[in-house]
C-alpha cells in the first residue's frame, strides 16, 4: 500500500499502463468488456441499422407471436411488434437505469458506510438512519415519492427524462443500505489495522487515510455489491413500471419485456429468453469486468 502511494504521483502513466496490462491478461474481464461493449453498441447504434417498416395495427396483428425468422430476427410479440426493435429500445433504458441507479446507490452507500465506520461519533446516527431505510416498506415509499415529485420533475424535464430521473433516484435511495452496512463493517476492521494506525500516528489527515488506505481495501465487496446492484436495479425498474410508477407503458424495458413474456413462457419461450439473456449477459459481463478490475487495481496481484 505504501508502495502504491509513493508510486502514484511520480509516474502515473506507467501505472495505468500496468493496470491495463493486468486487466488485459484477465480472460474473463476481456470477455466481459467485449460482451458489454457489444450490448451497448447494439442498443445505441442498432436502431439506426434496424428499423422495421411501420405496420398498421391490422397488419401487425396478423404477424403476432411469430418465432424468429428473417423478417423478425427475434420474433414478434402478442401485438405483432418486432422483438428486436423492442429489445434495442428496451436495452437503452434498462442499461441506463441499471448503471446510473447502481452508481448512485454504491456511491451513497459507500460514503455513508465509510463515515459511519471511521468516525465513531457518526456511527450511531448514520446506522440508525440505515436501519430506518431498511425498515421502510418500499412500495408505499415509492408511491409517496412518485406522488410528490412526478408532476414537478416532469414539468421541468419532460415526461420521459422526468420519469428516468425519478426512477433512478427512487432505486438509488432504496438500495444503498446494504452497501453501507457492508462497507461500514469492513471499515471498522480496517481502521484498526497496523498500516492505518501507522498512517494516523504520523499525523495523516483522516481524509487522506480514508482515500489512500481505507477505500482501496473495500473495493472488492463494493464491486460485488455493484455487480449485484445492476441486476437488482434492472429488475426493480420492471417492478416499478409494473406498479405504474415507472416509465409510461409504451416504453419497453428489459425487465418489463421479461415480465410481459412470462405468461407466454410455456407457448413462446423465446419471449422470456431474449430479455432474460440480455439481463444475465449484462450482469455477467459487469461481474467479470469487476473481477478483472479488482485484480488489476491490486498491486499485490499485479506484482505477481
Amino acid at each position: 500500500m505504501t508502495d502504491l502511494s509513493a508510486a502514484a504521483p511520480s509516474k502515473p502513466p506507467s501505472q495505468w499502463a500496468a493496470i491495463w496490462r493486468q486487466f488485459r491478461s484477465h480472460k474473463g474481464a476481456m470477455f466481459g468488456l467485449i460482451v458489454l461493449s457489444v450490448l451497448v453498441l447494439a442498443v445505441l447504434i442498432g436502431p439506426y441499422f434496424w428499423h422495421p417498416e411501420k405496420l398498421t395495427v391490422v397488419e401487425a396483428i396478423k404477424q403476432k407471436n411469430k418465432g424468429p425468422a428473417l423478417q423478425f430476427p427475434l420474433g414478434t410479440d402478442q401485438l405483432g411488434r418486432d422483438m428486436l426493435a423492442r429489445m434495442m429500445a428496451a436495452g437503452k433504458v434498462s442499461l441506463a437505469v441499471g448503471f446510473v441507479a447502481m452508481i448512485i446507490a454504491i456511491t451513497f452507500g459507500t460514503f455513508i458506510g465509510v463515515l459511519a465506520g471511521y468516525y465513531k461519533r457518526l456511527d450511531g446516527p448514520l446506522m440508525r438512519l440505515t436501519d430506518m431505510f431498511l425498515a421502510l416498506p418500499l412500495i408505499p415509499l415509492l408511491l409517496v415519492m412518485v406522488m410528490l415529485f412526478r408532476d414537478r420533475v416532469a414539468g421541468i424535464l419532460g415526461p420521459e427524462m422526468g420519469a428516468f430521473l425519478l426512477i433512478v433516484f427512487a432505486i438509488g435511495i432504496t438500495s444503498w443500505m446494504q452497501a453501507a452496512r457492508i462497507v461500514r463493517g469492513e471499515v471498522l476492521a480496517l481502521k484498526e489495522r497496523e498500516y492505518v494506525l501507522a498512517a494516523r500516528s504520523i499525523g495523516a489527515a483522516p481524509r487522506r487515510i480514508i482515500i489512500r488506505h481505507i477505500l482501496p481495501n473495500v473495493v472488492s465487496p463494493v464491486m460485488v455489491a455493484a455487480t449485484l446492484g445492476i441486476a437488482e436495479a434492472i429488475i426493480t425498474e420492471s417492478v416499478l413500471s409494473f406498479l405504474g410508477l415507472g416509465f409510461p407503458p409504451d416504453f419497453p424495458t428489459w425487465g418489463r419485456l421479461l415480465y410481459d413474456g412470462l405468461s407466454f413462457m410455456q407457448i413462446y419461450p423465446e419471449r422470456v429468453i431474449w430479455p432474460g439473456l440480455a439481463i444475465s449477459l449484462t450482469v455477467l459481463s459487469v461481474n467479470y469486468i469487476g473481477d478483472g478490475l479488482r485484480d488489476a487495481l491490486d498491486p499485490r496481484v499485479r506484482g505477481r
Partner: peptide, 24 residues
C-alpha cells in the same frame, strides 16, 4: 396496457398524438 398500445396505434394513424399513463 395491450389495449392502450393498440388504441394508441389507431389514434396515431388517425392523426392524434397520444400520451399514455398507467396508475396502480
Amino acid at each position: 396496457q395491450d389495449f392502450q398500445a393498440l388504441v394508441k396505434d389507431w389514434w396515431t394513424e388517425l392523426g392524434v398524438e397520444v400520451e399514455l399513463k398507467t396508475v396502480d
